[in-house]
Design a protein around this nucleic acid. Structure first.
Lengths: 184, 184
DNA sequence: TAATTGACTGACTGTGTAGTCAATGTAAAT
DNA sequence: ATTTACATTGACTACACAGTCAGTCAATTA
């Protein structure tokens, strides 16, 4: 594997596990068997390395979203979205951890401001499109509430409760939305 | 004001504004006109100072919760809870910021693990009690979902969207729960 | 073959950090 | 008046950190 990629992968892992502020570049070098000089040859600062990592996680999210077939009914798409969210959160825990971490840390939040804005606008828009097709009423507020629900679940699962009944909650959430819109 | 209290107040403010990891004790001293030695006289480490601060914010949350009159109907209490949450989040932004910050930062999350567990158990229990009285069905899952909703709103408001339509969302949330349980 | 480029190294620098400690100030108790 | 107990200071230590830089090495180009 080429060393630049290696730096990115190890840094992603360490930033996720220990937090950005608590991971020194020296630690990244040590873990990935690379000299300090090389890191600063490829990335002009530690901050810049984080930006590259965060940038590529945004692409990952966008791709995840685009994999949802637009020919299905909006309710099906919503359920697919919920499903893929729960699958992701379980399988790629660290990925979500890093995202929560940098978005709630004032310094990194500031550093990544433009990227976060871009990403959140994209997500909001995707959800709005689905909601608009299901139920034109209160599209805006319902979209925000839906996003808050998922984000809150991620936050509670990863950071707050340590025996979070994820399956139970997933089923209840699905039930809720099915009930809400199947009746109409 | 006595200097110990002063240290706590300034530290709370700076930790909230800039994050725990990004606030040095020197900065706290400088801002509160106190010597470094005094901070370590009153608190045996920077971590211990954070624990005291976090501990007292938990008490604040518990008091906030206890102020809700248990003689009212469960639906009224739920609406009161929602209302006080939205009032708090607007008026005491920094308080929520700090909480999000330390709970999503692996190092501080670890440090405060016992306190976080205690606090989250308390909150879950309070919500469960209300939900049990309104609707015995799926009490557990619905309580978790409700908490996720509020936490997600806080996260989105404070960390993700920077023009979050808080009022709109509050109204929609209230409408949703009223509709759900007034019909029965 | 000689020159150029870019990946790569690791010792080094300067700064900021948490935490210590011996000394001093202060006010109440004996 | 003397002791006791604690609040307070700021210079100090030891260390970890991000970032630099002079120089090595290997591959490509002229």
């Amino acid at each position: 594997m080429d060393k630049k990629t290696q730096i990115i992968e190890i840094a992603t892992q360490l930033f996720s596990e220990n937090g950005f502020e608590n991971t020194s570049i020296s630690k990244v070098c040590e873990t990935s068997n690379v000299s300090k000089g090389l890191v600063f040859h490829h990335f002009k600062s530690k901050d810049e390395l984080l930006r590259e990592i965060f940038s590529s996680t945004t692409e990952k999210i966008i791709k995840m979203n685009q994999s949802i077939n637009t020919e299905n009914s909006p309710l099906t798409r919503l359920l697919e979205l919920i499903n893929s969210f729960f699958t992701q959160i379980k399988e790629d825990r660290l990925f979500f951890q890093l995202n929560l971490n940098v978005m709630t840390q004032p310094k990194t939040r500031e550093l990544l401001n433009d990227l976060i804005k871009e990403r959140s606008a994209f997500i909001l828009n995707s959800v709005k499109q689905i909601f608009k097709q299901i139920d034109a009423e209160n599209t805006e507020a319902n979209s925000y509430l839906f996003i808050a629900e998922l984000d809150g679940i991620a936050l509670n699962y990863l950071g707050i409760f340590d025996d979070y009944p994820l399956e139970l909650i997933k089923n209840q959430l699905i039930k809720k939305y099915k009930k809400k819109w199947n009746l109409k």
